[in-house]
Design a binder for these strands. Sequence first.
DNA 1: CAATATACGACACCGAGTGACAGATTCGAC
DNA 2: GTCGAATCTGTCACTCGGTGTCGTATATTG
Lengths: 180, 180
Amino acid sequence: MALDLFAARGFDETTVDEIAQAAGLTKRSFFRYFPAKEDVVFGGVDVTGEQVVEDIRARPADEDPWESLHQVLSQWERQIHTSEQTLSSLRLIESTPSLHARLYQKRAQWRRHVSDALRDRPGVQLDPFDAELLTNAAATILDTVSQEWLRSDGTADRAALLDRAFAFLHPAATMPQKMP
Amino acid sequence: MALDLFAARGFDETTVDEIAQAAGLTKRSFFRYFPAKEDVVFGGVDVTGEQVVEDIRARPADEDPWESLHQVLSQWERQIHTSEQTLSSLRLIESTPSLHARLYQKRAQWRRHVSDALRDRPGVQLDPFDAELLTNAAATILDTVSQEWLRSDGTADRAALLDRAFAFLHPAATMPQKMP
DNA sequence: CAATATACGACACCGAGTGACAGATTCGAC
DNA sequence: GTCGAATCTGTCACTCGGTGTCGTATATTG
């Protein structure tokens, strides 16, 4: 629907009035369904939702956090259906600054949840800085994988790229201690 | 000037007309100096400019890319003067989604430059995916350090945090190869 | 059928940002 | 110093995203 309009005229060049009219609504009614114009695009794309957070919570508490992130994200990566529409949506997002910003915003709150999940583990208490560092690094991996996948026009193996990235960017076995 | 208004009434609650009037201008003239309302805040803050990119280009070509990033960013971190105003600016940015988005946007184009700099090295040609992964990881470290520094109310040692993060998130010595 | 909740349209409004035009200011050539 | 050009600035009008308000249909429930 609205995605066709974006594909044809571009995101910024398409007004909310046009989107609404194409869907048989008013501008006012459009904003009753979507908090912002940008959110039409993210309706179909699963922006790494609550499932991942729950999966991390379900992992054994004594598992290496980085390994947990790897396992959960790897599994998630293999579950999602990477349709042709996902590809064009991602392309649109990448080429539109405001959409890019919106995606980042959604990822930011997701990261907070993941970071909390890592620190909520019983037994070992993880330093907030370390938890955020690991979480942000994992998010960066996701981001870079998506970027590469986009560059390959959807032909690249996302799961393989993810594994490679997780293996490459490996935290030190012995965590450097804070200075007192 | 305008930062005082933001500190008092908040970013979103301060209109451009008010900023302009406080500076003795018109709204129209304001937009002749700043492309967007958000850019007033980033005027004083050095959002990791061209200097870092040049420094990376100046590094020995056979140096480990991660080490180059570490060295340059570490040096940069020790050069910047982290004033009280920087702290309040960062606080404002963190608490305002639109400013957060703008910062991310600026960082994005910086990352592209850094990634290009890493790949432009003579001799070794780095895979685009790897280059972006390293660059994004370094940017993530910067981000996390800033976050932690902010949480400590500016008392934390940024350089030390940076060193710790770079040591913690260390790429594997042997880079995993791509599958054919 | 009546009462109430929910959805939608219509209208007015605000703030960010832009284009066009007119007047002022600065600055260099002569 | 004068003239003319370039630059700066204010004014007005306009677009577009987003919100508040209100009146009115269309269910939904008893």
